[in-house]
Design a protein around this nucleic acid. Structure first.
Lengths: 349, 349
DNA sequence: CTATTTATTTGGAACGTTCCAAATATGTCA
DNA sequence: TGACATATTTGGAACGTTCCAAATAAATAG
């Protein structure tokens, strides 16, 4: 067991050069003679040298740490897992590493992990904020010159870059699709009203309804937790309405799945008896039965995009807030009926 | 915009004490006077001090970095995402942070990220190795005194701790369940034979078959990619066998889903015409139609467990390799027929 | 052979902490 | 009061790098 760490000085001694030279080799400087470089490299390999980034960061000005912090609100949701993977791909290929943490929608946890990341000297931060995050929470970071990119959920008021999907347009096209299928009573189900994403999606819904000449009816907007359970709850209320809706656009796919569950529990077949559209296009959407018609947002793409933007800002040194909305597209599957006749599913009563 | 970083010396000056005292406060030492502590803390808050962990690590011996490296082979698989969350939960509440990377089953990538983590001075590593990982890859880490815990997939030959689920027992109980339902010809479908996990599960299958007095028939073991597509392929071959099986245990849930797809494509209804059992109990298993009977392994639990073990080793200073197999349990749903019939699952939500 | 480039190498002095040994202040007891 | 114990504070000297200014070696010019 090697007791002490092998340092640049050990290398220097063994290779008969100065530590400065070793450092030069480490950075691939062109100042050093080829022969020397070879010798030093050989010694490093031989002694099993491992670079101490901490020490280097200490010396180098501020944020050369090459660590990117990534904070997501729910890693168990495959949407965000995909997003993290997208970030990782570009971050890694740029020679940075990723510091990933999950907040589970807890705002306190979020504060903790961001603080911790800061102590570790991250070069930049990508965050999908927990619900009800205070826009001011990231103020100190940007004040310290650490670029921040907010993804998925935007943070109105925060002076940071953000990438969000085009929630309005997506929901609008979902509504248009249902209208095209002849539906007149279309509900909007799920989601918490206190989020910017909710507002955007609802606005898209309303826009679609009004553009179709249908009246916007507030009774058809039923919020709930943005989860499967929330979907079950919401469809329950929706069905109890006097002038019952015949279709619904859902806040996200999880809600849509819950809506399907709730329909079946009432002996209604999603797709046949009631049309359902989701939002996000999570991996499960295409495997579900019936396969879910949904608005696809490509979380991995958002992750990649966000990471690129962040790296750009890090390299630029100066970060001016920039906002990007990424396009979305409706993926028509089976949950609104009419779709591609599925491989004969035995009709479950 | 604050130009320079606020350091412990700035605090010292402003609070009229020495930097040593500030350091003491930082570490919550009981040596410092209450009044002094209060004053220093106030100044720190006022000047917006942020602790520089890099500098601290530099001074402190070896691995006090409080960073835990986590490497998984496929973050988009919700099984591993759950695992990462499990790790994060205990790691975070112990005041450590998590460095998470995804290898996407690439062995090169794995080497890169592990090297990078090492440069950053991780205190320990939790890894779910990419396929065909060389056991020797983690040698240098443990030689350097950095504890490593391998999860999910074990690494025969590596002298590191590991946590794997009880693959043998799980598969055995799956077979027993099918035997109990009267099946005589039971196939084992999917998975790559070059993995330890495959060997274990196959051994469990064989054990169950033989314990039931049924003959072990190699023709009924059909390997394939451990994916949905692999499942489709495997069931195709299985059905083509002369003495056709009436049931199958699958390498994992993804394969099981593929098997269901393949059955339907041949106008066979999984559950009714052919019994299918999965392994893992991924989130989708209970929502699928028919809901999948499968062996539940609780990835989050494995993550938590692994993290605890790692922390224990870090604190102990010395790490002796320890191997734990976690219990699994068969969850009976609908994919073997007979199960809870009609009343659509309102059960969960 | 000296003067002048050009190529390479090199000692410190940082960076922001923690740790140690030693200094100072405070209190207690005879 | 002096001597001693106890509580609190404090200057350096590390830790492993990078950077700077300056030294040395080699090559070219005059």
């Amino acid at each position: 067991m090697t007791k002490a760490r092998v340092t640049v000085i050990d290398i220097a001694k063994a290779a008969n050069v100065s530590k400065s030279t070793v450092s030069l080799v480490l950075q691939g400087s062109s100042l050093v003679n080829e022969a020397t470089r070879a010798k030093v490299s050989a010694v490093m390999r031989e002694l099993g040298y491992v670079y101490n980034r901490g020490a280097a960061n200490l010396r180098q000005a501020g944020s050369k740490s090459r660590i990117i912090g990534v904070v997501v609100n729910d890693l168990t949701n495959s949407f965000f897992a995909e997003l993290a993977v997208g970030v990782d791909i570009v971050v890694q290929s740029a020679g940075f590493v990723q510091f990933l943490s999950n907040t589970g929608e807890s705002i306190d946890r979020q504060r903790e992990v961001v603080a911790s990341m800061r102590e570790h000297g991250i070069s930049g931060l990508i965050v999908s904020p927990a619900r009800a995050t205070d826009a001011a929470d990231f103020k100190p970071l940007v004040a310290a010159g650490i670029p921040v990119v907010v993804v998925v959920r935007n943070l109105p008021g925060a002076k940071v870059s953000s990438i969000v999907s085009d929630n309005r347009a997506g929901m609008m096209s979902a509504v248009q699709h249902l209208v095209g299928l002849g539906h007149k009573r279309i509900a909007f189900l799920g989601g918490f009203p206190d989020t910017a994403v909710f507002d955007d999606r609802l606005a898209g819904y309303r826009g679609g309804i009004e553009a179709a000449g249908l009246g916007y009816d507030e009774a058809l907007v039923i919020s709930s937790a943005p989860s499967r359970a929330g979907g079950v709850e919401a469809i329950g209320k929706a069905i109890a309405i006097g002038d019952r809706p015949t279709a619904a656009v859902c806040f996200n796919d999880a809600v849509a799945f819950g809506v399907c569950d709730g329909l079946r529990a009432r002996r209604l077949e999603p797709g046949a008896d009631f049309a359902v559209v989701g939002f996000d296009d999570v991996i499960e959407a295409q495997a579900a039965v019936p396969a879910l018609t949904t608005v696809s947002v490509d979380p991995q793409g958002i992750g990649r995009r966000g990471a690129q933007m962040l790296l750009k800002q890090i390299n630029a040194g100066k970060a001016e807030a920039e906002t990007v909305t990424t396009a979305v597209r409706l993926v028509v599957r089976e949950s609104c009926g009419g779709g591609t006749a599925a491989p004969a599913r035995a009709g479950r009563a």
